[in-house]
Design a binder for these strands. Structure first.
Lengths: 234, 234
DNA sequence: AATGTGTGCAACAAGCAGTTGAAAAATGCG
DNA sequence: CGCATTTTTCAACTGCTTGTTGCACACATT
């Protein structure tokens, strides 16, 4: 009762516009009753509230240690209401992750199709755009990148994306000296890249997105020591 | 009752020698009563049983999803007995991890002090020895490397070890072009290395430890494409 | 204003964590 | 062997979390 009054009078009114903007381009054509319920302002508000609360809690403790009751209490929402929107806390976590990924691919659409001077320059631009996007949503990415549960999801997504985009020439048929299989390269690169992001976010993003992109590119193409600006070991 | 008979007659008897060999060099001088209780054959047997059971369960599900009751039931041990040995499942996980690390540092002591032809050759030898050790205990490392909880612990341990051993020249004072800080390099390298191990173990260790060590070294010193045996992109 | 939908509330069953005390079993030692 | 010590079992208990349900009320949509 008290909660209701507080939430509706103080928070919900100003939040309405925001929510509508956020989902402005959402699917209006799916007129199934299941989706219709998703359109309700109150429901969207509650979901956003739960998502934001989860982010806040993730900054304090590991995802596995967070309980549904805890999320509901801090969001000033009844616990039963939580279960009316998400099957469990993992479903909520997934929704959080998925929306971030969607936003990322959206933000990366322009640097992807604009042709650049060289192959390498294109990679640098793409990476820089990624870091810029991450910086914009740093509050979200910081907690995701620090939680093992999300990191695993990020790794899978990134690896899949890498293996598609890093499509390499058939190669390897000419040189009998066997090179590292693409599979290993993709899997390890994904984790390595996540580590770069994690360090950057945990340390307050002390370097520009372009600087980070440069280091990443140099490391991949020329090795660690080159990237660190150190003469090769004798 | 039934459990007791089965465990003691079938398992415990043959297990005695094994356990005594395992802990043969353990601390016999600490005569405190707390340690005395640890020396008891039954207690050591139970702890080993619980550890092995956890490994078996880790192959089936995430660490966070495993319950104490589950471990106890499969180990054919009363749940109360578990709590007389470990505070919770995390303490059991830590003991598992710590023993693996101790064994690893022990196995790596010889390649560490034997001087090699070159700096690079020394690194390769050390990495190859690591992969060999991991192969020997692959059943344990496979489940650890696949579980986020253990991976986090491995990362911290490895990063600390790297930052000590990768002591680099002061550098960076001469070149105004700033190189990647050592901090980033260490953190990202640790995760990258764990990914290499994970891929290797998940795919049935299809390449020799030395081959893996070679790829790792090449990647670090010359970049990804060089390691993959691919001509540099134009 | 009427209807459908979202939320609050309270209670519920089921499961897990961690503890406790006493009885039973196994071990170590003289 | 026999006795004292240590370990294990067993049963029960508290407290907390999960996921569900029925009902009343508030809100949104038309």
């Amino acid at each position: 009762m008290r909660y209701t009054v507080a939430k509706l009078s103080i928070v919900r009114q100003p939040g309405r516009n925001k929510n509508q903007l956020w989902n402005a381009v959402a699917f209006d054509d799916t007129k199934g009753k299941l989706m219709r319920k998703n359109q309700d302002i109150r429901a969207r508000f509650t979901r956003k509230l739960l998502q934001d609360t989860l982010i806040a809690l993730l900054a304090e403790k590991r995802f596995e240690m967070i309980t549904v009751g805890e999320i509901a209490e801090r969001a000033m929402v009844n616990r039963a209401t939580f279960y009316r929107h998400y099957q469990d806390k993992y479903a909520l976590g997934n929704s959080l992750f998925q929306e971030a990924i969607d936003q990322l691919t959206c933000d990366l659409s322009s640097p992807l199709k604009s042709p650049s001077a060289s192959e390498v320059e294109g990679v640098i631009t793409l990476l820089a755009a990624s870091f810029t996007h991450i910086a914009e949503y740093s509050r979200l990415y910081r907690v995701m990148v620090m939680n093992a549960w999300f990191t695993t999801k990020m790794h899978d997504t990134l690896a899949e994306l890498l293996s598609k985009r890093l499509r390499l020439p058939p190669s390897s048929s000419q040189n009998a000296v066997e090179g590292m299989p693409e599979e290993i390269a993709v899997a390890s690169l994904a984790n390595w890249f996540i580590s770069m992001i994690r360090w950057w976010l945990e340390n307050g993003m002390p370097y520009s997105p372009r600087q980070m992109a440069l280091w990443c590119t140099t490391f991949i193409s020329s090795g660690l020591f080159q990237a660190m600006g150190i003469p090769l070991p004798h």
